[in-house]
Computed example of a mutant assay.
Amino acid sequence: MARTIVIAPDSFKGTIGAAAAAAALAAGWRRESPSDDVRLLPMADGGEGTVDAFAAAVPDARRMPVTVTGPEGAPVAASWVLLPPSPDAPRGTGVVELANTSGIELLGTPPRLRAFDAHTRGFGEAIADALAHGVSRLVLGIGSSSSTEGGTGMLTALGARFADAAGSPIADGARGLGALSAADLSGLAPLPSHGVTVLSDVTNPLLGARGAAAVFGPQKGARPADIGELDAGLARLAALVDADPDAAGAGAAGGTGFGLLAWGAQLVPGSAAVAELVGLDAAVAAASVVVTGEGSYDGQSAAGKVPAHVGALAAAASVPVALVAGRITTDADTSGFAATASLTALAGSSEAAMQDPARWLTEAGAVLARAFALR
């Protein structure tokens, strides 16, 4: 009797997205066990690849192209995904990600880090496009941000107005926050009828030592001397906008979490929400074997990351689960997995694995198929 294999990895950050990783694992598994029914449910936590994951995992999902203003002001060809109607969203759900509209990946390789100038206007433009389509609900992924401007670019694209002391619109990006004197959110587009869910596994507040500028600013090019100025700009915004800067996740995506709270959105843990939206629990319960993975599985991976969530669902359903990772560190607890495969070990080095991740994911899929064929 054919087995059902569910393949549900996260992206292997910086090397390959979740959808492509799932496809490569499936190719290797099918090479060894062609009679198995392999189902792909690529996962995400709100960062890069969230749109791709939904497009691959949800039947009848439609990719909707849109051209937006990128984080440096140049046009960017992006897309959002329209999920089919459901009882919770009778006119469908729009899935929009910050990464492919305003993300740090759009600033080149290596990224041209622009601590004060990058912005989220394009993210807001893609959200506006989904609203114009008439969706009943929005799901927004806000990982992989390039900016530290509190979501002001996004809110401006949705109808808000941010002005300086003379009443003129402020500049895009964190640079504009230094001159911010007034915020008018009365023109914001209304939320869709079934609300806005924001996927984020970041719980940082907007301001202070754990805030957006101090914790994430250096990743976006902020020098130590810049942190205070960035934080002060975000504080000016917080003083003018009716949202809680201390709320968990307000500091996510350079403060975009705060901007979304001001709009009325709800921030939720990313991986668990994606799992629910794509029906992962039912798929796992019906599976013979589950395969999950991420780029680096280490001592922190058990705290809310995709493999841990998938593993918990599999354990609850008494279904064996296997782990694939670019590397598995010595401090990682892999005791809950029936089998593991490290791309670094298969390729001989982390450099070789990262140069051709699809090849080594295919090999990992084949290795795991052989391992479970012997059980």
Rank of each mutant, 00 (worst) to 15 (best):
G94I: 03
A128M: 09
P87K: 02
A232R: 12
A252K: 04
D52K: 10
A130L: 04
A315I: 04
V274E: 10
G249C: 08
A345F: 09
P218R: 03
A225Q: 12
T50S: 08
G195I: 11
E276Q: 14
A189S: 15
T330W: 08
A353I: 07
L206V: 08
A44Q: 12
A19T: 03
S296A: 15
A55W: 07
A238T: 06
L207I: 05
G103N: 07
A262E: 07
S296V: 13
S146F: 00
R121F: 13
A132E: 11
V68C: 02
A213W: 00
P224H: 10
T340K: 09
G151R: 06
D10R: 13
G228I: 01
F216E: 01
S342F: 12
T120F: 06
R327I: 13
T67K: 15
A325P: 06
V96I: 13
A252C: 11
T152F: 00
F116Y: 13
G251H: 03
G94F: 02
D331C: 01
E149F: 00
G70A: 12
G73K: 11
A248C: 06
G17W: 09
A126L: 07
A57G: 08
A225Y: 03
F123R: 01
L138R: 13
P65A: 08
A339T: 08
F258C: 01
H309T: 15
A209R: 15
L82G: 02
I16P: 01
A128E: 14
A353V: 01
M354Y: 10
G92H: 10
